[in-house]
């Protein structure tokens, strides 16, 4: 910890999974050693950059690297997407948040959507290695947006694939209803768009299956200082960064979370345009 006083956070590997979704492997030895599934990092590309929270997809303590998958949805994520292998980012902080509870529960159902299928894989793998029967369900908006299918197949005993538009596998979350009815499931983990996590939580509620959601609301420092990431869980206000990011999906106020996620939408659009104009027009 003394030797590594000056750290360079280099991109060791960059891989485009599908258009606008990239996998990045960063050299970050100290973080890699401490990382557990469910935790996140905050990175900053350069001096003017935002602090961007990303849930980790994996960590390799021996190689000294951590992996994240990032979807280009705004200015900062697009800026990250433009970097190449060998480039460095300015700041990388982690591991943040409480690790996921990984135990032998029996049969664990892991439901992921969009870019969050990648960090879900980190948990699914851990559940698999702990001796659970892992049933996976992954989805995307459309066929060519689907990621991490092969990785998930390796660690799941069964894998269901779905898309919003039905271009691949099941259409929507309908397949879940039958699955929940027919099988004995001991725990559900869901990571993805808030609306999807809400739907999954609603579907499991009648069966009383513990359902864990992984929440990354808007946050700034990521260590409990700003309170931007406050979420209402069971009527109490909690901070996703330090009290989570995993919460009981049956207790979360998803409506509030969805509203709060839109708080800076006009500014985010402005920043995006500013970036496209190369910063000239403003």
């Amino acid at each position: 910890m003394k030797e590594e006083a000056t750290s360079l956070y280099r991109i060791v590997t960059k891989r485009e999974l599908v258009p606008h979704i990239n996998l990045f492997e960063f050299s970050a030895k100290e973080i890699a050693v401490k990382t557990r599934p469910g935790q996140f990092i905050i990175l900053r590309v350069d001096e003017k950059g935002e602090r961007v929270p990303l849930t980790m997809t994996g960590a390799d303590p021996e190689k000294g690297t951590i992996t994240v998958v990032c979807h280009e949805v705004g200015k900062s994520t697009r800026q990250l997407g433009q970097l190449k292998e060998g480039d460095c980012i300015l700041d990388l902080l982690g591991p943040l948040g409480k690790p996921a509870e990984i135990e032998k529960f029996g049969t664990v159902l892991c439901i992921g959507g969009g870019v969050m299928v990648a960090p879900l894989y980190f948990q699914a793998k851990a559940f698999h290695e702990t001796g659970n029967t892992v049933i996976g369900g992954i989805g995307a908006r459309t066929e060519n947006q689907l990621i991490f299918e092969n990785e998930m197949r390796e660690v799941c005993d069964e894998l269901y694939v779905a898309t919003d538009d039905g271009t691949r596998g099941y259409k929507g979350l309908g397949f879940l209803e039958g699955l929940l009815k027919e099988r004995k499931i001991d725990r559900v983990i869901t990571m993805g768009p808030v609306l999807m996590m809400k739907k999954v939580s609603e579907l499991t509620r009648p069966y009383g299956i513990p359902t864990i959601v992984n929440l990354i609301p808007i946050m700034v420092d990521g260590m409990g200082m700003c309170g931007a990431c406050r979420v209402t869980v069971g009527g109490r206000t909690l901070f996703a960064c330090v009290d989570g990011p995993d919460f009981d999906g049956h207790q979360v106020d998803f409506e509030e979370l969805m509203i709060r996620l839109k708080m800076f939408t006009p500014q985010e659009k402005l920043a995006f345009v500013f970036q496209e104009e190369g910063g000239r027009s403003l």
């Binding site: 003017k48 200015k75 402005l270």
Partner: peptide
């Protein structure tokens, strides 16, 4: 929405220089 802790407000403005948005990427 629109209710900040002083910490969030000040971190955005001071540490992240949101007063110079969009040159600095953090909004306020």
């Amino acid at each position: 929405c629109g209710i900040y802790s002083a910490n969030e407000f000040l971190i955005r403005v001071n540490l992240m220089k949101a007063y110079d948005f969009p040159k600095y990427a953090t909004p306020i």
